[in-house]
């Protein structure tokens, strides 16, 4: 009865059909909210959580915790379970403060790592920002470099908060805001390409993989 489950061709078709229905089901929201969308929305929420359970066990807990603890005899990993259970005390009125202990470890880790992150990330950026000499280079380069500094200074000026911005500072700051808008426009334009690529991927799936190959049986 379940023979089709081991037949790669039949299974391939089933997967394509399911994927096509999921795709069209979600797209119906573009027309308006409806029962079909709501159905697939809940399938989506369920699959997402179910998959997270599977992947967390298979990729993390099994190889990094269970196997070392049970098969390799590193019994002290049992303490990790107890520590992990502290998270759940957040739902207890009486012991919820203990969940802060485990949050504290993660807050602390994140804070401690910030120094290395800052140095590794911003030192090269600062250096490259300085590497814009405006004298002793060809004129077009000098203009570009000057522009770089002017933009950097004006945008950063916009983001000073601890004093009232008046007069010349206000003018630089307003220019900074305009330059920001220019940059945001560029980001918007670039992003259009990204989103269109994804849509092309989906439409290609519907037209080629689903309609042409699976329904029409074309090669």
């Amino acid at each position: 009865m379940f023979d089709f489950l081991t037949d790669p061709a039949a299974m391939g078709k089933a997967i394509v059909w399911f994927a096509a229905l999921c795709t069209l089901g979600l797209y119906t929201i573009l027309y308006r909210e409806n029962v079909v969308f709501r159905f697939f929305e809940h399938i989506f929420l369920g699959l997402a959580t179910g998959y997270a359970i599977y992947a967390t066990w298979n990729d993390v807990l099994r190889p990094r915790w269970w196997t070392p603890m049970v098969a390799e005899g590193r019994w002290w990993w049992a303490f990790a379970l107890s520590a992990g259970l502290l998270f759940y005390l957040i739902y207890s009125k009486r012991y919820s403060w203990m969940s802060r202990l485990i949050f504290a470890v993660f807050f602390g880790f994140a804070a401690g790592q910030a120094f290395q992150f800052f140095a590794s990330t911003y030192f090269p950026l600062i250096r490259s920002a300085i590497n814009n000499p405006v004298v002793g280079v060809p004129v077009p380069t000098a203009i570009n470099n000057l522009l770089f500094i002017v933009i950097l200074v004006s945008v950063m000026t916009y983001f000073f908060f601890s004093f009232e911005q008046r007069g010349g500072v206000a003018r630089v700051s307003r220019m900074g805001r305009y330059l920001l808008m220019f940059a945001f426009g560029a980001i918007f334009g670039s992003t259009i390409m990204a989103r269109m690529s994804l849509l092309i991927g989906r439409v290609f799936f519907l037209l080629d993989t689903w309609i042409r190959q699976t329904i029409l049986g074309g090669a």
Binding site: I126, A129, I130, N131, N132, P133, V134, V135, G136, N145, I149, L152, V153, M156
Partner: peptide
């Protein structure tokens, strides 16, 4: 910001 501007000026010269 001051460091960057100073750095650019010094580098230029």
């Amino acid at each position: 910001l001051a460091l960057v501007v100073l750095g650019v000026l010094l580098l230029s010269f």
